[in-house]
């Protein structure tokens, strides 16, 4: 059973991930489909009885999802390479600007040592490559106990929170 890290724990991944979706295909109860296939005809998914999510790549503009934010149970952002940092900005725009409150999942080439930053940018779920040890990666979530700047997890910067 594939797993993800969610809410600081390793749990099984209950979603089916579609790398492509053709209109008319029967979707699994819980599905994550490509953003372009979703946007091609969003109304067709209104009848879907289960939970639906979309995934986007680092070149996608999250703003295009603004009208669908509340109907998506999961938004997954793919990191084609761990050095491609666009997903961090995409996540913050989704959370802080578009007000997305569902599961925000980082997928693709993500590493243990990035989980802390990803979490700060609003991700709450992480699917590492299969060969990476998720239990060990959990440690990466809490590399630092204090941050100077505000982000999605704590919008207030330290200078507005400090006691003295």
């Amino acid at each position: 059973m594939p797993v993800i890290i969610k809410n600081q724990k390793v749990i099984s991944d209950t979603y089916t991930f579609y790398s492509s979706y053709t209109s008319g295909d029967v979707l699994a109860e819980r599905s994550i489909i490509p953003i372009d296939d979703f946007l091609a005809n969003p109304t067709q998914f209104e009848q879907h009885s289960g939970s639906l999510g979309v995934w986007l790549d680092s070149h996608h503009e999250p703003e295009v999802l603004s009208s669908y934010i509340h109907q998506l149970a999961v938004i997954a952002i793919n990191f084609p390479s761990f050095t491609d940092g666009r997903g961090y900005s995409i996540a913050r725009v989704l959370r802080e600007r578009l007000g997305y409150q569902g599961e925000l999942r980082a997928v693709g080439d993500i590493l243990h040592d990035q989980l802390f930053y990803l979490k700060r940018c609003g991700f709450d779920a992480f699917k590492l490559h299969a060969e990476k040890d998720p239990e060990e990666a959990l440690r990466g979530l809490n590399a630092f106990s204090i941050s100077y700047q505000g982000a999605s997890d704590h919008p207030q910067p330290l200078f507005r929170r400090r006691l003295h």
Binding site: G85, Y88, Y117, L118, R120, F144, S147
Partner: peptide, 14 residues
């Protein structure tokens, strides 16, 4: 310096 130190969004810039 403080703002940019471990800025979570800008650690993997181009």
């Amino acid at each position: 310096r403080q703002w940019s130190t471990f800025h979570p969004e800008f650690a993997y810039l181009p």
